[in-house]
Design a protein around this nucleic acid. Structure first.
Lengths: 340, 340
DNA sequence: GGAGGAGATGTGAGCGTTAACAACGGGGGT
DNA sequence: ACCCCCGTTGTTAACGCTCACATCTCCTCC
């Protein structure tokens, strides 16, 4: 079956021979150089087509010193947020003419991020986006190879890199204020995993509003983003007397809480109002439809590429930039004026 | 700011000089060649560390003719299924020592897939996984460059490539039979977008069971995977007299249907039983918790890499293989014996 | 004690492309 | 008529690595 004379794919020299020109002329045609006679160009193109020639980007990258590939380091791309962000990144990168090389970490630790960055650097990527919203990712960003541009998504204020993020504090304020405006005495909170930077922002915004309204500040309940953890928190909350409003750090946990309340016969929003965060596509169809705060993950992805490209263009004289994507409050049916 | 003497990153020759050996010895150390004296190895390693040297994989790829990078072509990685599959692929690829280069198409058409394959081929990927469950992706797979191994996920029986898929027909049978066993006279169906191969399989399995039980076969309702389309289908279904059981082609649409029924005061599962498909993490916490059919997307991803690697190893004398991942029925609270 | 062999290291070529420069011809300005 | 310049094409040398082969040393075995 396999012939011993192992057919090599055609190279530039083959095209050149066939078209009766030098390989350099072929290169010029491929790179849209202006100084090629139309007739010559046509002849080269014909030869390329006939031979089924494909340019070897590896050889090209060796001499040009750039691969037109961007690296993306991300955490658990099964989650809606990271998945959407990465999707936005990929689309934006490709429409700017770049490829995307992915590394998905299952756990985020400094070493893991550092390794990923190292691998990508070895691969010769022209830039890197790190979607690593955990605090533990930050140290790895500090000692990234300085010669390669990096943008962090939700990366905290880690000094030395550009950052794109959603205004978590503002989003949490929106949610909390909405609940207060509805007449609730205070708002409980189900939080996300403590290591996540977003989690802090949401707690901060929530607390802010409560503090400046002079309301009691209940202890936040722990969660891990999963519906199950929201369910458990919901069970606990239902046992606490006087709870009428809950701000949950993401929609999936809100779903879990909704489930817990349904099981216990607590009516939402009549007895308890709930606000989520993220606005996943399912939220609108929860029972009841979930009032939440939308994060535009697509915009986050696009902006991270925007910043990265700018940085790549600017080269050395680049000062790190920060872009904040505003969240948007989405009112639906899981919140209502306090009954009492 | 930018010095004219533009510092180049160190290369192998620099390491060699520093360690007092030849560049070839450095190469041997880097590639774990056995024939290097321990003392020499240590010296080289020290030089590497001191210089902060990183191997240039591009140059390496040029001569070895492989990049240790795998290409993945996928459709809308925002959806849970594709996202999980791609995640599984990435994990498996990386643990086998490969990088993953992603191309996410927003619409699947033959030209788009063909382009993506072309780009990846130019990039020099060692193999490609195509996660393109639409029928329109198949033609592009036919004329893929023959010198590069390809595995398709849910790729139909497109002759010339290896395929990994979930047994959709079997899954649909499980769902439908469950409903029949519960005493329902027949089972309605809300389908997915017609171009998807999985959709056919689910319809086939559903119809099979109905036919062999001699039951009436209602016209399937159209859907597009989104909760909204499930909601609309649910609204229509509620208006049809005598509907007691519905098999929905995915969990998100099932959520929409659940919402529609809730709004209309139709009680699930008392009046209507619903079975979904996929078992997304949220399903367990729907109201009521959704009976569904689990697809192990992670396994699909792992198997696609497994097949791809085998194929890469075998080289020319490779006969295309097929792996089917079994689905699993998950009973929860959205189904019940027919009341009447 | 010399041949043979195995282990350790060095040398030169080449992977397929682009960059820098050279060469060549023909038109326009003086 | 001469020179210069521009548009077009070719020639040669990198890019940073691995592969094939040459070399050298030291050990073993008869």
């Amino acid at each position: 079956m396999s012939p011993s004379h192992e057919r090599r794919p055609p190279v530039m020299a083959d095209v050149a021979t066939k078209a009766g020109v030098s390989h350099q002329t072929v290169s010029r045609v491929l790179n849209d150089h202006p100084n090629v006679r139309a007739e010559t160009r046509a002849r080269v193109l014909a030869a390329i087509h006939e031979l089924g020639y494909r340019r070897n980007m590896v050889a090209r990258a060796l001499v040009t010193r750039h691969t037109r590939t961007l690296g993306v380091v991300s955490f658990d791309t099964t989650l809606y947020g990271p998945a959407s962000t990465v999707y936005g990144i990929e689309q934006a990168a490709r429409s700017a003419g770049y490829f995307v090389s992915m590394v998905s970490l299952k756990t985020i630790d400094t070493a893991g991020v550092r390794d990923a960055l190292g691998y990508l650097a070895e691969q010769g990527v022209d830039g890197i986006v790190v979607v690593a919203p955990q605090r533990s990712a930050a140290p790895a960003l500090a000692d990234v190879p300085t010669d390669i541009p990096v943008v962090a998504v939700e990366g905290g204020h880690s000094g030395d890199v550009s950052v794109v993020s959603v205004d978590q504090v503002h989003g949490a304020r929106l949610a909390t204020r909405h609940l207060l405006d509805l007449g609730h005495e205070t708002v409980w909170h189900i939080g996300g995993p403590p290591d996540w930077l977003e989690v802090e922002g949401r707690i901060e915004g929530w607390r802010d509003v409560l503090v400046s309204a002079g309301r009691p500040i209940p202890e936040p309940l722990p969660g891990d983003w999963s519906p199950r953890s929201g369910y458990q928190a919901g069970l606990r909350l239902a046992a606490v007397p006087g709870v009428t409003a809950v701000f949950v750090a993401n929609d999936q946990m809100a779903l879990g809480a909704l489930r817990a309340f349904a099981e216990l016969g607590v009516r939402v929003p009549e007895q308890i109002s709930i606000v989520g965060f993220d606005d996943i596509p399912e939220s609108e169809f929860f029972t009841p439809p979930l009032t939440t705060v939308r994060q535009d993950f697509g915009a986050v992805g696009r902006w991270s590429i925007e910043l990265l490209l700018r940085q790549m263009e600017a080269g050395a004289e680049w000062s790190h930039e920060r872009h904040v994507v505003p969240p948007r409050f989405v009112a639906r049916a899981s919140t209502a004026p306090v009954h009492a």
